[in-house]
């Protein structure tokens, strides 16, 4: 069953047993199946194969199968780097959720004709190249940058503070770039909220805090879960922006794999690290899923 993005498993409402797929259903699903097979399963299988192989001095694959890449990959360094990447991704997800939820709620409850335009406004800043966005941030955060000179001229600071090239800058870069991917899915859940339900909560004397915690948030959980997924998962392997803003002294798993693939000319080892990342990730998904099933 699909539905790893859902918090409550994927039970259909009562009285709606899921059917066995008809021929038409298979036909409609077939493009997705073919796509997955050709462009997801085949490349992943290839990578897994490569991860057991060796390479020559130019980086071409030599098909001598052995486990040496995995022996090498089971080292505390790589695990530490992976854990750190996961930690940053987690932090990013939490902050995006805090920043994104009220925004998504506001857009979802805005008058209908404003919703489209507000959504557009959330997304449009990202229709620029990530390089110029990131260099703009560098301009703002640097020691002789806008924020420091603003703080100094307003008397709040005496000396410029180093904000760039720090864990703070890494998280800022990630949050900035992934925030829309939290707002949009939550919006889709908020948008279908039944007004009557919220009114009822208020009518029964619930304050905004109680209405939110008891009614609104539980009802929008699928959107929150989807948003968390769309922010958390891709930000684990993200590295271009984090390296630019963080200064590159904390290696991330995406960067390490990239470097083994390119300047290391060691695709088999890079593939082994990538395969391990996939395995860890799949196990984690599987576990959360079974956990939810048990809870249900």
């Amino acid at each position: 069953m699909i539905g790893f993005a859902s918090p409550k498993g994927e039970r259909l409402p009562e009285g709606a047993p899921r059917r066995a797929p008809s021929l038409v259903a298979w036909l409609i699903l077939s493009p997705l199946l073919i796509w997955l097979l050709l462009f997801v399963v085949a490349p992943t299988a290839m990578l897994t194969l490569v991860s057991f192989a060796e390479r020559d001095s130019l980086g071409r694959i030599i098909w001598n199968f052995n486990l040496q890449n995995y022996v090498r990959a089971f080292d505390w360094v790589w695990i530490k780097i992976l854990l750190e990447s996961v930690y940053y991704a987690f932090l990013t997800t939490v902050i995006c959720m805090a920043l994104g939820y009220p925004t998504a709620y506001f857009i979802g409850r805005a008058p209908e004709r404003w919703r489209g335009i507000l959504l557009m406004l959330v997304m449009v800043p990202f229709w620029t190249s990530f390089l110029i966005r990131t260099y703009a941030w560098i301009n703002i955060l640097s020691k002789e940058g806008l924020l420091n000179s603003l703080l100094i001229s307003s008397g709040l600071l005496e000396e410029p503070v180093a904000m760039l090239y720090s864990p703070f800058a890494i998280v800022l870069g990630l949050v900035y770039n992934f925030l829309p991917f939290m707002i949009l899915p939550i919006y889709t859940s908020v948008e279908k909220l039944d007004n009557a339900m919220i009114e009822a909560a208020y009518d029964l004397g619930a304050g905004p805090v109680r209405a939110f915690s008891k009614v609104i948030i539980p009802l929008t959980r699928p959107g929150i879960a989807a948003g968390a997924m769309l922010v958390f998962v891709p930000s684990i392997a993200m590295f271009a922006i984090t390296t630019l803003m963080g200064g590159g002294s904390n290696p991330t798993i995406g960067e390490v794999i990239f470097k083994q693939f390119t300047s290391g000319r060691n695709q088999p080892f890079g593939a082994a690290l990538g395969t391990l990342l996939l395995i860890v990730f799949i196990i984690a998904l599987w576990l959360t899923h079974s956990q939810r099933e048990r809870e249900d």
């Binding site: 360094v77 780097i81 002294s249 060691n266």
Partner: peptide, 15 residues
Amino acid sequence: TKGSDIEELITTLKA
């Protein structure tokens, strides 16, 4: 093939 080793060395030290 040494390129991979020096990548690993620097990564290890950075981490």
